[in-house]
Simulated assay, not measured.
Amino acid sequence: MKKYQVVGIGNAIVDILSHAEDSFLKDAGIEKGIMQLIDMDRAVDLYSKVGPAREISGGSAANTIAGIAQLGGRTAYVGKVKDDQLGAIFAHDLRAQGADYDTVLAPKSDPQETGRSIIVVTPDGERSMNTYLGVTEHLKVSDIIDAQMQDAEWIYLEGYRFDGPESHDAFAKAINACKGAGGKVSLTLSDPFCVERHRDAFRTMIQDHVNLLFCNRAELMAMYQGLDFEDALAKAASEVDILACTDSENGAHILSGDQRWHVPAYPTTVVDATGAGDLFASAFLWGIANNYDLEVCGQMGCISAAEVISHIGARSEANLKDLFQKQGIAV
Rank of each mutant, 00 (worst) to 15 (best):
D258Y: 07
N63D: 13
A318G: 08
L243Y: 05
K3N: 08
A222F: 04
G67P: 07
S128D: 13
F90E: 01
D83P: 11
S18N: 14
V135N: 04
E307Y: 00
I89T: 11
I119D: 04
L139T: 00
S109G: 09
M40R: 15
Q85C: 02
L320F: 10
G73F: 03
A172I: 03
S109N: 12
A174R: 03
L46Q: 09
I9T: 04
H198E: 05
Q325I: 13
K235N: 11
F229A: 14
P123W: 09
A20P: 10
I309T: 08
W154R: 11
A91I: 15
M40G: 01
M129N: 06
S190N: 08
A88P: 02
D200S: 15
E153K: 12
D151L: 06
G328L: 09
A147F: 03
V6W: 10
G51Y: 07
S190I: 09
L187H: 02
I9F: 15
P107K: 06
Y156T: 04
L285I: 10
A232S: 14
F280W: 14
I175A: 04
L25P: 11
E295Y: 14
R127T: 11
A218P: 01
M149Q: 07
A330I: 14
L17D: 11
G8K: 02
S23F: 05
N11E: 02
Y224C: 07
E158M: 03
A283Y: 08
A237V: 08
I145G: 00
Y156I: 11
D102K: 10
I312P: 00
Y101F: 14
A252P: 03
Q85K: 15
E137Q: 15
A76T: 12
M1E: 10
L189H: 07
L189S: 05
W286N: 13
G79H: 00
A99R: 04
K326A: 15
V78K: 06
V121P: 08
Y266A: 04
S109D: 15
S109K: 13
F162I: 07
E126M: 10
K80R: 14
S142K: 13
L227N: 07
F214Q: 03
A281F: 06
Q327M: 11
Q148T: 13
G164Q: 10
A172K: 15
G226W: 05
G275H: 10
A283T: 10
G182F: 07
E239Q: 14
Q36C: 09
H138D: 08
A244V: 03
F24A: 10
A181G: 07
L255P: 02
D151Q: 14
Q259V: 05
I65Q: 09
N63V: 09
S142R: 13
I144R: 03
F284V: 06
A330Q: 13
S48Q: 14
D100I: 06
K235R: 12
F193H: 11
A172F: 07
